[in-house]
Amino acid sequence: MNDKLKAALVGGVTFGIASGLPYIGAVNMACCALYIGGGVLAAYLLIKDLPAQAQAPYRDGAVVGVLAGLFGGIASVITGLVAKALGYDPAAEMAATFQQFGMPMPEGIGVDPSTGMQLIGFVVNIVMYVIFATVGGLVGVAIFHKKEAPSD
């Protein structure tokens, strides 16, 4: 398995599973932190063994971010389905969170969607994951890139 694929798989699946888990998944409501985190972790894993370079490999960061998003989105959907099958109700959790902060529940969110809407929801989830993990991959490269010392 090549390095990019391996990094994307580890970063994406780790944060994808976290996104699908009860309570931890709600962290995504803070600016998609887990989606972006998957891309950042994938970029870190890709870069950590690379030699110092004159310019940060943003292109590789974007590619690894897209892949991490794809793996993460799928992992998130599967984890969400497993959690739901085990009796976890995300709408009830959300309602409890809103109630805790004394805020009204936004309309439409607590409604149980039809099977068709659920399928669309899965696709949307994966697309969102790809978009934000790509940004995460780019940010990860920017942060963890080892800069080559200028030669005299």
Binding site: P51, Q53, Q55, A56, R59, T134, A142
Partner: peptide, 24 residues
């Protein structure tokens, strides 16, 4: 500032020779 990063990535994609990094 984050918006700069994809723009640089596009440049690296279009000009791979120009922006190629030196390997150790």
């Amino acid at each position: 500032p984050v918006a700069l990063l994809p723009l640089v990535a596009f440049t690296q994609r279009l000009n791979p020779i120009h922006t190629r990094n030196k390997k150790e």
